[in-house]
Every structure is written in C-alpha cells, then in structure tokens.
Amino acid sequence: MVRVSDLKKQASSMNKAASGLRSVGRDHTAKPLAEFTAQQHDLGALGALGSLLGAKSEIEKGMTTLSKLTEQLEDEWSAEAKLIGAVSDAFDLLDLLIAAEAKAKKG
C-alpha cells in the first residue's frame, strides 16, 4: 500500500532533482560553453605547427561539434527536468487524493 509520507518524500526528492537538472546549464555550463565557443576561431596557441599540419580547420570543426553536443545535452537535461517535475506534481496530486479518500472513509 502506498503511504502518503512515501509520496511526499518522493515528490520532494523529485523536485530537488528537477531543480538541479534545470540549473546545470544555467549555473555550470553556460559560461564555459560561451568561452569555448568564443575561442573556436582563435587557435593562435597552435602557432605554426597547427598551420603546417592543417589541423586548424579540423580542430575548429571539432570544437563546433562539441559546442552543439553540449547545447543538445542541456536541452535533454531541461526536458528531463520537466518530466521529473511533472511526475513530482502527479505524486503531489496522488497524495492529496489518498488523503481525501482516507478522510472520507473516516467519515
């Protein structure tokens, strides 16, 4: 049997998880990604070696790919956070329904 206290714990835990997922991109990856993206075409650190090896173009492509993958990962985290939030809301609603049913049975 599902207990109300269990649902409250699960809902609370899921809310924390959703909040954490929402903040990953905003709090942890936004600035590094912006700095990384800004450096994509400034590969001066490779110097002549990069030019001689023809690596600059490939490195730029790789950096662009990494930036896009990071953005897609953030989108996925955001979608997962929404889903977890929805499940948490459903648990809250179920908790209310169980409590109302228990109250009705008591009379």
Rank of each mutant, 00 (worst) to 15 (best):
Q40F: 01
L52K: 07
E35R: 10
T65W: 02
A81F: 05
E71C: 03
D89S: 08
T70G: 04
L69V: 08
T65S: 13
M14P: 07
E101L: 02
L46Y: 14
K9D: 05
S23R: 02
D95R: 14
G47T: 11
A102Y: 12
L97C: 08
E35F: 02
A102K: 09
E74W: 00
G50P: 00
T70Y: 08
M63L: 13
Q72C: 12
V87Y: 04
L52D: 06
R26M: 02
P32T: 09
L93K: 14
L83A: 15
S5K: 13
L97V: 14
E71S: 13
A45T: 15
Q72L: 12
A102T: 05
L69I: 03
R22F: 00
L7G: 02
S19V: 04
L69W: 14
G47M: 07
Q40L: 10
K8G: 01
T37F: 05
S23K: 13
T29W: 04
L7N: 01
Q40I: 05
K61G: 07
I59R: 04
M1Q: 08
F36T: 00
L94G: 03
D89L: 10
D92E: 15
E35K: 07
T37E: 04
S23I: 03
G25R: 01
V24A: 07
L94R: 14
L83V: 11
L33E: 04
A55E: 07
G44E: 11
S13N: 15
K103G: 14
L94I: 03
A34V: 00
G50Q: 08
W77Q: 05
P32I: 06
A34W: 02
D95E: 15
K8T: 03
E80C: 15
S51G: 11
K16P: 05
Q72P: 06
L7P: 03
A81E: 00
V2H: 12
L66A: 11
L49P: 04
M1I: 08
L21Y: 00
D75W: 07
G44Y: 12
K31F: 05
R26A: 10
K56V: 11
W77L: 09
A55R: 01
T70K: 06
L21M: 05
K68L: 03
R22A: 03
E101H: 09
M14C: 04
H28C: 00
D75H: 08
D89Q: 10
G47D: 05
G54H: 14
A55G: 03
D42S: 12
T29Q: 00
F91M: 07
L7C: 06
E71F: 01
A38E: 07
T65Q: 01
E58Q: 12
A99V: 11
L52C: 06
L21A: 03
V87T: 05
K105Q: 09
L53P: 04
R26L: 08
L33S: 08
K105D: 03
G47V: 11
R3N: 09
E80L: 10
G54M: 06
K9T: 05
V2C: 09
S67N: 10
K9C: 03
K106Q: 12
T37H: 14
D95G: 14
T37G: 01
P32R: 06
L97R: 08
A17D: 01
L46T: 10
Q10I: 06
